[in-house]
Every structure is written in C-alpha cells, then in structure tokens.
Simulated assay, not measured.
Amino acid sequence: MPLDLQIRAMLERAAAAPAIPLSQLPPAVVRDGFRASILASLGEGYEPLPLAEVRDHTIDGSVPVRIYRPRTEATSIPVVAFSHAGGWVLGDLETHDEVCRHLSRSLPAVVVAVDYRLAPEHPYPAAVDDYWTAVCWLAEHAADFGGDADRLAVIGDSAGGNLAAAAALRAREAGGPPIAVQALAYPTVDATLEYGTRPGGSYTTCGEGYGLTLSTMRWFVDCYLPDPAARIVPDASPLLVDDLSGLPPAIVATAEYDPLRSEGAHYAHRLAQAGVTVTHLDLDGLVHGFLYQTRVSRSADRAREAFVDAVREALGARLDDSTEVRA
C-alpha cells in the first residue's frame, strides 16, 4: 500500500530540516532533540489526558518509574510494565507520557512506565536489568494500586519492545513472575541487524527515507552493545533464541515502511511456530513510531487503537461505563 499521505508530509518536513549525523553529537543533545520532536508532535493546545492518579516513584531507590491509574469503577484491573522507544539511548518518562496515559485509560490498566538507564553512559545490560526490576516489583505490588498481578502485561515499542521481549524470556527461565501477554510494537529483536539486512529485508528496502535509518540503528547498537559478543545473547536478540516455546501470548505490531519490519514479522512467525499464541498486526502505509504519531496521522491513530484493542482482548480487560476511552 502507498505510504500514508500524512506520514509522507511529516517525513518531507523532517528531511527539509538541516541534520547532523547523530554519531557526531553528544547523546544529551540528541536526547533533547528527540524529546522536543515528540512533544512538538502533540500539537499546540495539547492537554494531558486526565486520570485518577499519575505519580512518580523510585523502585528500591534506583529505578525511576511513573505510575498511571485510570478512573474506573472496576475493583481489579490489569497492570502494565511499559518500556519506551529510543534505541536504548533516547527517551524518558516525558516522551511517552501521552502514550502511557492513553494505554492506562483505554485498556483500562495500571501502567508503570520505566525510566531505565540509557546508553552509552549505561550500556547493556543496564536497561534490561532496570526494566526487569520494575516488572518483578509490579508483579509483587500490583494489588497496592488496585491491579491484578495475574493480568500482568509487558509492553514496549522499538527498543522498549526489545526489553519487553527480553523480560518475557527472563520470566520463563526464572519461573516467574507470570506474564499474561507481551505486546511489542515495531520491536528491535535482532541486535546484530543481520536478519533485516539480508537481500529483500526491510533494512535494504526501508533503511533510508522513512524516519528511522539503518545508520541510526547501527549507532544505537554501538552505544548500547559496544561488545559484539553481547549482541547475540537472549536479552539483546530474542530472535536468535533457539527455543521460544513456553513464552506468554504475544502481540507483535509491525509497520510496512519500517526498517525493523522484517525482524519483527519473523519473530512473530517463530513464536507461532513454537506454539505461542500470536497476534501479528502488520500495518500498511505506516512507519516506525506510530504509537506517538497519532496526532499527525489518522492511520497511525487507527493503528494504535488496533494495538490497544488486541492487548485489551488478550488481558480480558473490560471497559466499564465510567471509563472514557478517548480524549
């Protein structure tokens, strides 16, 4: 399908702006630019979606999180550990605040967003260790927020999807905590970048001109995984794990013009081959990052709703009359 026209216009505006390769800039400068671009995409007059509670917390004095609790009359609702995008280098609680508010109210669920440590200052395994700490803490403390630990979801987009997939693998190996669903939006699941760079792979067809580029992904991987030997371990490259059986049900969303599409689609295929229940949302006309492009593109908005609907169904969540889905 052709690239969504609103997305195309967004990409053309970005391409017209002067750009310096990310590798030539200090990470702090790149982070500031990423945050500014995400917040600008929300548009003038943006007002955060109101919830029953939004508060910051620190787990064990070391892992900052933000807890979102929706307005609902349900006495026990699902809980979500959310990990944000940004190549393990960019992103924070502010860049994905709008996404987390939407997830909390639309599922509805208690959402805990994890402000994991970023590379290159904190290379692998800092990010996945922080996220795993938050997942285990949420499983233990779900009831404190009116949450149901038996309906625990790990959700992330891009590099955050990598962390969510890694947490599902860790939980399988550790014998818990039990995870009800892993929901991965355009995930990074092959830190070697080899699968998508094969002939016909999405790095070869979409590695330039669609926002996220192959050169940017190489920079992200170099920052987070400077040791090439670490790029093949399960926590870094879930796609390379020999046995994917026994993992929780998965939702994998991929975008047609995303350089990560090939690896995400193949991961969904391999999970299904291993007997895992999989919902693969292969979304036409979109690019990487559609979860936070909903105010730019109506197609991205519909894609996010499809992703949320799939998570809600997997969790057995129910909207009650007091829950307003849309802003």
Results as ranks from 00 to 15, higher is better:
A36K: 13
A183G: 05
A149H: 10
E47C: 07
L51A: 08
D148C: 04
M1R: 14
A149T: 08
L49C: 07
H84N: 07
P199A: 12
D309C: 12
I251P: 00
V54H: 06
T192A: 04
V308N: 04
P259E: 08
E173S: 15
V128K: 02
A19S: 14
L25W: 04
A159I: 05
Q293Y: 06
D4V: 08
L271K: 04
A113Y: 01
R172I: 12
E263K: 11
R261G: 01
G211P: 00
A113R: 01
F307Y: 14
D284N: 01
G175Q: 12
G175W: 13
A52M: 11
P178L: 12
A230W: 05
C136A: 14
L49W: 05
E47S: 14
T188K: 11
L184Y: 06
H102K: 14
A253V: 15
L93K: 08
D150M: 12
D144P: 03
D130K: 07
H269C: 03
A303W: 01
S158F: 07
P123T: 09
A268H: 12
V128A: 04
E313Q: 15
P177N: 09
G91D: 07
M1V: 06
G161P: 10
W132R: 08
F220T: 04
P123C: 11
F290K: 05
C223R: 03
D321S: 11
H96G: 00
P259D: 08
A250H: 00
Y124L: 06
P21K: 12
R298P: 01
A310C: 04
T213P: 00
V241R: 13
A300Q: 04
R170I: 06
G285N: 00
H288R: 02
V325D: 13
A253I: 09
G200A: 09
Y267Q: 02
V296L: 07
V278F: 03
A167F: 01
G160W: 02
S41M: 12
M10S: 10
Y186S: 05
A149V: 10
A183P: 03
A143H: 14
R66G: 02
L271H: 03
V112W: 02
T323D: 14
A230S: 15
D301G: 06
S158C: 13
S37C: 11
F34P: 05
E313P: 04
E44A: 15
D97K: 05
V308H: 15
T216H: 04
